[in-house]
Nucleic acid binder design. Structure first.
Lengths: 112, 112
DNA sequence: GGAACACTTAGCCTTATGGCACAGTATTCG
DNA sequence: CGAATACTGTGCCATAAGGCTAAGTGTTCC
């Protein structure tokens, strides 16, 4: 659970920044070099690189360097942890809803 | 888009903290008072209140005060923005996959 | 009324975050 | 070889985040 939570934490922290979400969106269209990505954002390259590093260290993207160009690729699978978390939430809600429904049913039976 | 992004930003920022995610999970089981929630976390009440406020200001929970007790309720609908964002990502990926498939198909046709 | 309770407000502190400029390294091109 | 390119590394800065203590405020209970 602690480990799971740590993974989740990194992914959510990575997604908390609009620049980084935009990079993920952008990479959804296909692999792109750091330079090409950076040109779309109003910030310097070193600043942008920090975001790239955050995304990579949290497993949301993968990068490779060929010559002097570093190319970023989206790691789609990683976003599954968000899906899983949402699914778990829903499971909890539904359990509760079921309990409440049973409660109502039991009360009705008691009234008969 | 800017407005949408701002909403999204708040929700992801709120979810980036493990304490806050835990509160959401906890509230999935039903409404709970601030005090009852706080007792489950290794931090002081004022510190914990900040998290409650963050969650409320970003629309993830709703609170009401009755007497001296403030009760927190989960706002399930709010998490839909995360769902929507994930769905949009998938849409982008699928568009790309479709394009790649067409490309392969066209090449095969050209070879004939 | 007074004590206990459940927050709430205020102010402080430390660390993390996100930005910058500037200098350096490694490739590529003419 | 030398210039341009594409990062990369370093160090600095301002603000925000997340924690604390201490001192309120308003309710409830005896």
């Amino acid at each position: 659970m602690a480990q799971y939570s740590a993974q989740l934490d990194g992914v959510f922290v990575a997604l908390a920044d609009p620049t980084r979400r935009w990079v993920i969106r952008r990479l959804g269209h296909g692999p792109t070099s750091v330079g090409d990505l950076a040109r779309e954002f109003p910030m310097t390259l070193p600043s942008f690189m920090k975001h790239v590093q955050t995304l990579e260290s949290n497993g949301l993207i993968h990068t490779t360097k060929s010559g002097r160009v570093r190319t970023c690729v989206l790691n789609r699978e990683r976003l599954a942890v968000v899906d899983d978390w949402l699914a778990e939430q829903r499971r909890i809600w539904e359990e509760r809803t079921d309990r409440l429904e049973r409660l109502v049913t039991d009360e009705q039976e008691n009234q008969q």
